[in-house]
Amino acid sequence: MRCPYCGCDETQVKDSRPTEDNTAIRRRRVCNGCGGRFTTFERVQLRELSVIKRTGRRVPFDRDKLMRSVQVSLRKRPVEPERTERMVSGIVRQLESQGDSEVSAEQIGTLVMEGLKSLDDIAYIRFASVYRNFAEAKDFSDVLDELSSEDE
């Protein structure tokens, strides 16, 4: 593993532990060159996934990008990070187990919206506003009506 501080290829693992939900291994490393300490995570990857964007362009699937977009919608909301991690891990497992090496951005967005609906209504609305490309206040009203009709 390359050191993020000095770029040295010689690093040493000092500690390995499973994460809270046992979906990854957390490794504490020390650089033999500069002595810098950093953490890496190792996850199982069933297959390489490509995302087909709305424009038709294909890009490699990036779990971290998915996590960042979910975290943006959950910013300043009372949701534990472990629940967010479990939701994202579940989405990635679903995508990898479908059998296709290519998934559409719409498919990912739908799975995220389903997950956010069960986590936090406000985060769901925030994500929907970007995912569905809201243009006016009526779009927010429509999503609120959807949520309230499902609660009844």
Rank of each mutant, 00 (worst) to 15 (best):
S69F: 00
R2K: 14
G7E: 09
S50A: 12
V44S: 12
V51C: 10
S118K: 08
C31D: 03
A128D: 05
S104A: 15
D151N: 10
E10C: 01
I122N: 00
R86V: 06
D15A: 13
F134C: 00
E48F: 12
T55P: 00
I125G: 00
Q71Y: 01
F61D: 08
R57F: 09
T110L: 06
R58E: 13
V70A: 05
L66W: 03
G36R: 04
N133Q: 15
K76F: 01
T39S: 04
L49T: 11
S141E: 14
S69M: 11
S50E: 15
E114W: 00
Q107T: 15
R75K: 15
P18E: 14
E85V: 08
R17V: 09
G109A: 07
G56V: 02
F38C: 09
F127R: 10
E150A: 08
R68C: 04
R29H: 06
E136K: 09
R28P: 00
C8V: 10
E10F: 02
D62V: 12
M1Q: 14
P18D: 12
E10D: 15
D142T: 07
S73F: 00
V72Y: 05
P4S: 10
E136G: 01
D64R: 13
D100C: 04
A135G: 14
V30A: 11
R26F: 01
D100S: 14
